[in-house]
Design a protein around this nucleic acid. Structure first.
Lengths: 135, 135
DNA sequence: GATCTTCGGACACTATCGGTGACCATGGAA
DNA sequence: TTCCATGGTCACCGATAGTGTCCGAAGATC
């Protein structure tokens, strides 16, 4: 880790953990975006469904209008989501996954599946931990 | 979405997007934890490696001591990471993935791999978007 | 034609959360 | 005796996310 401006790995690093953990590394930046809690939900919801802004807002419980707007902007900028504006009144804006977004969807779905499959184990672990701490 | 205190889905919801998006749903809570940017890095780094606190702090560029502490506490509570304290001076604390954490590692690694595989596409999309916006 | 409604979004304000730097305990090294 | 290394904790502060309000435009209603 000698050159902070590049994403280079020594062989030692490769052996040890295979990917760059430097903050300014592009992979890190994309991961931060993709692993965002709202982004995950948006991408998961847009699988096979074109949705309007209001539909997304309705389906994602707890998201604010502002966060949905910024999340969609980010995803659009990254080429994961397409935004189609219809010049009608009241306005209609459709959001859908791009082909690139669809490739990501598989991975995100596996994350969701993992969570569903292991939520009881996690609940048990949490209960055990809390018991240990308060004891 | 009529009962805010339970994680129940109507058949319509299942057809439409397959998982609960309610904010108080346990899956959502676990996802928020697991999809955290620091958690991702910690889990990825702990693959096949037991690491000490300082090693993690050194390897994860940009993480503060407080965030590393809280992230590790969360992961420990969720049963994904084990914490071993050696009663020596100066203190020595080892962190490692639990079996449960190892099952998550595969998914996280696929997320990282996706990011690596598509970072150039994303860079292109971003450039195009920025050009369109500033134009 | 006045007014209401709808939808996507901008904006100002506020609360919360993460970052920063100081401090701590301890025993061995210098 | 002083210093340091290690794994933390804590108080403070700024950035970031959340909340509520307002908006623009056209069609429906009266």
């Amino acid at each position: 880790m000698n050159s902070p401006s590049r994403c280079e790995l020594t062989e030692e690093d490769y052996e040890a953990f295979q990917w760059d953990t430097r903050e300014d590394c592009e992979v890190r930046q994309i991961l931060d975006r993709v692993a965002d809690k709202w982004s995950l939900l948006v991408i998961a919801l847009l699988d096979r469904n074109t949705l309007r802004f209001t539909e997304l807002k309705y389906k994602i419980d707890g998201i604010s209008q502002r966060m949905l707007t910024t999340t969609l902007r980010h995803l659009e900028r990254d080429g994961l989501v397409s935004r189609t504006v219809y010049p009608v009144v009241p306005p209609r804006v459709d959001y859908a996954l791009t082909p690139l977004g669809m490739t990501l969807h598989k991975t995100i779905q596996s994350l969701v599946t993992w969570t569903e499959d292991h939520q009881s184990e996690i609940a048990v672990a949490r209960a055990r931990y809390d018991k240990r701490v308060t004891a």
